[in-house]
Amino acid sequence: METTPFNLIKLIGKRWRYGLLSLLVATGLVVGTPQVAQGFSFFDVLFRGVQVFQLSNMSDEQEVKLGKQINQQLIENEITLSRDGQLNAYVDRIGQRIVPHSDRRNIPYTFQVVQDDSINAFATMGGFVYINTGLMATAENESELASVIAHEIGHISGRHAVQQMKQRAIAQGLLSAAGLDESNAVQIGVELAVSRPNSREDELEADQKGLDSLTKAGYAPIGMVTFMEKLQQQGGSPPSFLSTHPATGDRITALKAQINNPTQGDGLNAQVYQRRTQALR
């Protein structure tokens, strides 16, 4: 006789039949939805122990766990981390100085230097921030570098990667009634880290949050403006760090309107910065 879920019930004692039957009925309701058919079934969750994320109310613990997995995939397949201990320690020191002044200081943050000459920086969920050596070499002082780090912390504070993951999962038909399974979440997280599809609203919010935390951390806020101006004035196509909407000029104008004392604070000594980043020269 073919073994089916309902034949299986007959083989089980009476005391368990009604509980199992209820579970199977509930499972049928979930599996019967079109979204689940495109993603994964409830049986996967039940019998394979698949981790499922509800993106609308993902906890900090879940986000950090997912961020660690995305980070591991990035390191193994997409990026090369710098082995210079001093550069990594320097970036981490700046980042950890800013974190206590952000809107989201209750999760651990990891700051890493990527060995890449392109002018880039990005962040993934769970507190992971990446700064390219090319961007560090382009910055003139610590305030400019700190402004980029603060901006990326702003993306994490705004939970932009989580919202982007939800949008991408819906577009790819991977979001089920139960949520998004772990393997798909990691894959999408890596895709987002590589493509960095931040919207106009996300960029403006990250600028605002970044400027606020940068200033509260004691850095001169002018660094955020001068760094963007420096990149805007470079010939050829704009660096990918700024290849997003809104236009860089609009972002600079918005930042200037928010700054009261542009040179009040730390990080404007170019000579000190040159010494601390000597390995890049």
Rank of each mutant, 00 (worst) to 15 (best):
E2D: 11
P5N: 12
N7L: 12
K14Q: 14
W16M: 14
G19W: 06
G19L: 12
L23T: 11
L23N: 04
L24W: 00
V25W: 03
A26F: 01
G28W: 05
V31R: 06
V31W: 08
Q35F: 01
V36W: 04
A37K: 15
A37E: 14
Q38S: 13
S41A: 11
V45L: 14
L46R: 10
V50R: 12
Q54P: 10
L55H: 09
S59D: 13
D60R: 11
D60C: 10
E61D: 14
E63F: 10
E63D: 07
Q69K: 15
N71W: 07
N71R: 12
N71G: 10
L74T: 08
E76V: 03
N77W: 09
N77I: 00
I79G: 04
T80K: 14
S82P: 01
S82Q: 06
D84F: 11
Q86P: 07
L87I: 08
G95W: 07
G95C: 06
G95D: 01
Q96F: 07
Q96D: 01
P100I: 02
S102R: 09
S102K: 05
T110A: 04
F111A: 11
D116H: 12
T124N: 12
M125D: 10
G127M: 10
F128N: 13
Y130E: 05
I131R: 08
T133R: 05
T138I: 05
T138R: 13
A139T: 12
E142T: 09
V148P: 05
I149M: 12
I149Q: 02
A150R: 09
H151D: 07
I153S: 02
I153C: 06
S157L: 00
R159Q: 14
Q163C: 07
Q164F: 09
Q172P: 05
Q172I: 01
L174G: 10
A177V: 11
A177G: 13
A178R: 11
S183G: 03
L192F: 10
S195N: 13
R196A: 15
P197T: 14
N198E: 02
E201R: 11
A206H: 05
D207M: 08
D207P: 04
Q208W: 03
D212S: 15
L214W: 08
T215N: 09
G218I: 02
Y219D: 07
A220Q: 05
P221F: 01
I222D: 06
I222Y: 08
G223E: 01
V225D: 03
V225A: 11
E229L: 00
Q234W: 09
G235L: 08
G235D: 15
G236P: 07
P239W: 04
P239D: 11
S240L: 11
S240T: 11
F241W: 06
T248N: 14
G249Q: 06
K256C: 01
A257M: 09
Q258N: 09
Q258G: 05
T263Q: 14
Q264K: 09
G265W: 02
N269I: 11
A270N: 10
A270T: 14
A270L: 00
Q271Y: 10
Y273R: 02
Y273T: 08
Q274I: 08
R275Y: 13
T277A: 12
A279Q: 13
L280V: 06
